[in-house]
């Protein structure tokens, strides 16, 4: 088994799955019907990406685990998503701040992964990057609209960005698992996208009349299974049926 590739696919797939689950929590709660529709679109894209990535991870592992086995029968410490995506929704500004930071990171990463030496991963990236470009645009538009909207929305949008900023560095960190794959031309060194990320974020934040606060101590550990308190609660809800009825298929 290609353990590093399996691990890398879990990281990518879990990012999609965990963020999709958070977006599902918005269903029927959005500020307008149009926003409800667009949040569902984002969620659907992410569930689809999770299915492809975790499905492939299961094949690479070769132990008979499919996408659902991986999604529903791993505990929080076996999840490999970054900490940002598991953070609670907060208000709409926070949700948009989270989506904005994640989608720009992810779009830049996928753009590079299209050239991965692993053709299957390159194909998944080619499909996902189109979706993610739209996510980044939509979230950027909201950051601008809320930042430059009313006094209240400006304050909430600034609070949202400030709240999540400590989770940004983790997305660009590289450990031994990724280093090996980068050398093999499979994974992308996220460091190469950091400059572009900072430039994009700065540009949007400026148009939104907001500012990026200087970085505090970065929170990390998600890629190694050291999560925040929120993930296990989320998974307890998400996994309840398959865990309670392990014999059933759905």
């Amino acid at each position: 088994m290609d353990k590093a590739l399996f691990e890398y696919l879990l990281r990518l797939g879990d990012d999609s799955l965990v963020l999709a689950q958070r977006l599902c929590e918005w269903s029927s709660r959005a500020p307008t019907l149009e926003v409800d529709l667009s949040l569902s679109n984002l969620g659907l894209d992410l569930v689809g990406q999770a299915q492809l990535l975790l499905g492939y991870a299961g094949e690479v592992e070769g132990q008979g685990r499919d996408e659902d086995r991986l999604a529903y029968h791993r505990d929080a410490e076996e999840y490999r998503n970054c900490l940002l995506v598991e953070q609670p929704n907060g208000d709409f500004a926070q949700t948009m701040a989270r989506h904005f930071l994640f989608s720009i990171y992810r779009e830049l990463l996928l753009d590079e992964l299209v050239g991965s030496s692993d053709t299957r991963l390159a194909e998944i990236a080619a499909k996902a990057v189109k979706e993610t470009r739209y996510h980044a645009e939509l979230a950027s538009d909201w950051v601008i609209r809320l930042g430059d909207g009313t006094e209240e929305s400006h304050r909430r949008m600034q609070d949202g960005l400030d709240w999540f900023w400590r989770f940004v560095d983790e997305m660009f960190a590289v450990d031994e698992v990724e280093r090996v794959l980068i050398e093999r031309g499979i994974a992308v060194d996220p460091a190469v996208t950091r400059e572009a990320f900072d430039a994009r974020v700065t540009q949007v934040v400026k148009s939104a009349t907001l500012e990026v606060k200087p970085s505090t101590w970065p929170q990390t550990g998600g890629r190694q299974g050291n999560h925040t308190e929120h993930l296990s609660t989320m998974l307890a809800e998400m996994q309840v049926l398959p865990r309670r009825y392990p014999e059933a298929t759905w």
Binding site: P31, T32, V35, F92, A93, R145, L146, G149, E152, S153
Partner: peptide, 9 residues
């Protein structure tokens, strides 16, 4: 809960 978002938009 969404009133402030609609106002901002």
């Amino acid at each position: 809960d969404g009133a402030w978002v609609r106002e901002a938009a």
